[in-house]
Design a protein around this nucleic acid. Structure first.
Lengths: 192, 192
DNA sequence: AGTCAAAAATGACCGTGGTCAACATAAAAT
DNA sequence: ATTTTATGTTGACCACGGTCATTTTTGACT
């Protein structure tokens, strides 16, 4: 059984990722140019596309990894007990998804698996997010007339909507936690 | 007081739009190329960008106009009386938004005003959509513990989510009305 | 008709993402 | 060691959206 990847490969990919991180740290996601990344990494342009199907795939990987980091932070916290705590707990993810319009767009575009049989890194994090939410809700003081999975998906939908609203010119001033909470209350805790 | 636009201008713009419609009819939105549009319209490339700030602006206009047509159709129908009728009534919009992944992406990208002070044609249709929904809900048999505007926005959020799910590899088989109805029921009609 | 300033059209040119046939190098087989 | 095969790399090249200095057209006012 032979090694499917050579040492070289790992090194090159690592260099590309490091270069990309460097560019992003300096200029943000949106300003990243493939040419700049390969220049810093010291490889030819073609090499980039031998490692990533396209620029989006690189972005998906980098952003997916940050989403996972945010979810790590979220999971370390104690289980939120009410809507306000849920909103509070979601802050790291919210911060990431609102840091740049471009980032939000990439996430939206990849939130469903792009192709059948192939679930990208971002789609995976959505599955994980879903699981985290279900964990919170399954023993929480919320309505029980609807399956937990559906409750969680609904929270996800409102979460996305609030972020979308943040990037909307008309609403960019209102702070987001304040916007999300009433929706979650209406969704999770309809009048008894 | 002189004419701010010349006859020429209207004619050229009309030719560009007609050319674009022709390309879309033949090959769909995603395949549209600016070069092809200007070739058919018989104008230079630069002219295109004198009439539309970018390709996206053309798309926003064409798609916005189709959304408006769909909303016209929707408004002609009698006011839906329950969730199933609401889902039914939304069919024209749903059909448009699921016709191509690209179309859905454009709509999402433009659903909030792109820039402050400038509300694009698609953002406008979202305002109209919102109004239509509020009209349906304000006298319907739905929960009243939440403002109508919020109910309507929630319907919009679930609507978008269902369409996003449609483009997700894992769920593309399930039919959408069937997916949307339970959500709307849970949102609009929590147990009394 | 002739003049002229504003409006519109032009097309060569650029930036950037992405392709691919040719080439280089590593590991396996002889 | 040498050959062979799979794997990795290269950079010239292409496609496509978008720009802008220059040229053409328009129509208002002599």
């Amino acid at each position: 059984m032979k090694q499917p990847v050579q040492q070289r490969t790992l090194k090159t990919r690592a260099r590309l990722l490091a270069a990309a991180e460097q560019v992003i740290a300096a200029q943000g996601f949106e300003a990243l140019r493939v040419d700049q990344v390969v220049a810093i990494a010291g490889v030819a342009k073609g090499t980039f596309f031998a490692h990533f199907t396209d620029k989006d795939a690189l972005m998906a990987q980098l952003i997916g990894s940050r989403i996972n980091t945010a979810l790590d932070t979220i999971e370390e916290q104690p289980t939120p007990k009410d809507v306000d705590e849920i909103v509070q707990a979601l802050a790291p993810l919210m911060a990431l998804m609102t840091c740049e319009r471009y980032v939000f767009d990439v996430i939206l575009r990849h939130s469903g698996a792009a192709m059948a049989e192939e679930i990208g890194p971002i789609a995976e994090t959505f599955g994980r997010f879903q699981t985290v939410l279900e964990g919170w809700l399954k023993d929480g003081p919320v309505r029980r007339d609807v399956p937990v999975a559906m409750l969680a998906e609904g929270v996800g939908a409102f979460f996305i909507q609030v972020i979308a609203l943040h990037f909307c010119a008309l609403h960019s001033d209102v702070d987001m936690p304040a916007r999300l909470a009433p929706w979650l209350r209406a969704w999770l805790l309809p009048p008894a």
